[in-house]
Design a binder for these strands. Sequence first.
DNA 1: CGAGTGACCGCAA
DNA 2: ATTGCGGCCACTC
Length: 117
Amino acid sequence: MSDTEADFRQRVEELVRQIPKGRVMTYGQLAALCGNARAARIVGGIAHFGDPSLPWQRVVNKQGGLASGYPGGRAGHKQVLEAEGIAVTDDYYVNIASLLWRPDDRQEKSSPQITLL
DNA sequence: CGAGTGACCGCAA
DNA sequence: ATTGCGGCCACTC
């Protein structure tokens, strides 16, 4: 397997990179889309050692709660998410029910202009 | 090369 | 309903 092998982390990073602004994804979903639904923890590990330039801030757990190891703590994470246009509760929870984004969701169809970053 | 850990998830009492 | 525990895979030292 050398054609589309692309290390697990590379695929995850690619997906995270494609997460549009104002949307969030769950670690489990990223892992599942990557092929290993049980590798949810790995996604978190990659988030810590992967490319810090990626919008890991848009990646939250299945409960919609912010991660704990984010630089600056959940407080900083909350600030960044709010800056992205995502509403965060005082308990550091986001409404994934409305903000959960899927790779097959064509948000560009309804958004003529994409303002990423 | 081996062992430990982790930004999680799911299930059991 | 809440709390606690284990498991799983990949990454790092």
